[in-house]
């Protein structure tokens, strides 16, 4: 079976000079949790935006389940951006109904259960919630979908250890078993135990794609230590 995501010779340039991705070729297998790692400016976010159809590539192609990013891939990709996209004036209930209306794979009962566990009222308006709670609400919405691909951009950046544990637990317990989870992060230590594979990116290209247990077994190193070694200057 071919990979869930096939990327061929993908190039994206901003403003003529700045090249964000250069001739990237990459396959994401099915049923894996994959870490997308690399220093700032390595092209992680550009790749994620391209996968979600928020940017259009200059050349090359992306196939998700055999299709280019568009309405039908968006129906099976669940995306957690780095920023909160929740409308300030909306209530939780309105958001749930919005997700339920648009995403066929959205499981409202699951979302409600998780919201109840955090004691978040469905009548609450987003504006009244703290930043941390908003982030959790967004994660709950994203993880309540039975998607084929989850793309999580820096899900644990800037959160305290308790929130981090909550986020990782939520990801593990809720992702669809046959789905692939792509997590971009710079906090490798916090997340490496839940990964199957890692992708190291550098200057808009793929540096390395390997299984994490392989790194531990063959190099006797943690992914974090190995990352430091690879990117040492």
């Amino acid at each position: 079976m071919s990979g869930l995501v096939e990327i061929h010779n993908l190039t994206k340039t901003y403003d003529k000079k700045k090249e964000a991705l250069h001739d990237l070729t990459l396959t994401l297998p099915r049923g894996k949790i994959i870490g997308l790692l690399g220093p700032n400016g390595s092209g992680k976010t550009t790749l994620i935006k391209l996968l979600n159809g928020l940017l259009v590539p200059d050349s090359g192609e992306i196939l998700i389940d055999g299709e280019k990013p568009g309405p039908s891939t968006k129906a099976k990709v669940s995306y957690l951006p780095e920023r909160t996209y929740l409308k300030n004036g909306a209530t939780i209930r309105e958001l749930l109904s919005c997700f339920q209306d648009f995403y066929e794979d959205f499981r409202a009962d699951r979302a409600k259960e998780m919201l109840a566990a955090l004691q978040i009222e469905e009548n609450a308006r987003i504006r009244t919630l703290s930043k941390g709670t908003r982030e959790k609400v967004q994660l709950i919405l994203v993880m309540s979908r039975d998607a084929s691909l989850y793309i999580l951009d820096e899900p644990i950046a800037g959160v305290d250890p308790a929130a981090r544990d909550y986020i990782l637990r939520t990801i593990i317990t809720n992702y669809n078993e046959n789905a692939t989870v792509l997590i971009s992060t710079h906090l490798i230590t916090d997340i490496e135990n839940i990964l199957d594979e890692v992708i190291f990116m550098k200057e808009g290209n793929l540096l390395l794609q390997t299984s994490v247990e392989e790194i531990r077994e063959e190099k006797g190193k943690s992914v974090d230590a190995y990352f430091r070694e690879v990117f040492a200057c």
């Binding site: 159809g53 928020l54 568009g70 995306y79 920023r83 409308k87 648009f102 995403y103």
Partner: peptide, 13 residues
């Protein structure tokens, strides 16, 4: 703006 991240990832053309 940030809300565009939801708007443009809805499964619509």
């Amino acid at each position: 703006t940030d809300e565009g991240y939801l708007t443009h990832t809805l499964p619509v053309s």
